[in-house]
Design a protein around this nucleic acid. Sequence first.
DNA 1: GCCATTTGACCTGT
DNA 2: ACAGGTCAAATGGC
Length: 285
Amino acid sequence: MNNTLITELLLGLDYATQLKFLLQKPVDPDASAAAKELLTNVHRSFAQTLSILTSSHPAMPQDQVAQNLLISGEDASQAASIDPRSDDSTESRKRSFPLSKDRRGSYKRRKTEQTWAIVSQTTEDNHAWRKYGQKDILNSQFPRSYFRCTRKFEQGCKATKQVQRLEENPDMYNITYIGFHTCKDTLKAPQMVTCSETWDSFLENSHEDLNVPNEQKQLDPPVRSQSPIVKQESLSDETDPSDLTDAMWSELKDLELSNDKPDLKISSENTDAFMYLLSEFGHEF
DNA sequence: GCCATTTGACCTGT
DNA sequence: ACAGGTCAAATGGC
């Protein structure tokens, strides 16, 4: 990612952060006007970012560009390939207990949950995840890992995510989120960018010092040194899209990207996911 | 001992 | 039938 892009994203993040704090204050006319302006800036910044993405990747098809920030209400499962891998019946370790005893209960595979995918340098976000599975994917050299929210059983949170390294760039992760968090469990990112930190100082350090996910050790052999992840079970200042005032919300729904790439606009039907992304990944860039 | 991860089995959608 | 998603016993780390 080039510096212009990062700068633009950081700018957008800055606006979003200011907006977040503004919305936490009691309503007053001045704050409302400022929020409006900040919202415009956030919109402009993300539009500019996408514009840069599309212009700097002329060979990249639109849908591929969109995959960097893909929001979808449909099933995100990938199409099956024609080339079937030879079935490996080499089961070196067999279960010690009888197979007939191992009848698992039936379960419903979610199909209608809203999904969206991002490509990120880190798998870390401000939520606690628990890995529940890993699969080798056809024609992919990297396995796909499956995570669920740690609060799934405590609070019935349905959020899950799938993480897979990119074939073309193993340092990057393709992360597919399925369903929104309904729990109140967030983690404080170790290197959260705050308003007090200048973008310049962040830019100088960001490329090597981005927080290393605690899941990384589960995916593939680690390539970087681990930094400690401090789990914080409750964080009171989580930005919940539902916290937005109705006026702001309806205004947000009217927003469309102003560039000339209609395929990339974030439609009102995806605003929920868009705002969710803002709240989830604002600290990441 | 508790909790998270690993991993083969099982289940579902196509 | 197959690929991918989920389950849950085994395992390991603290």
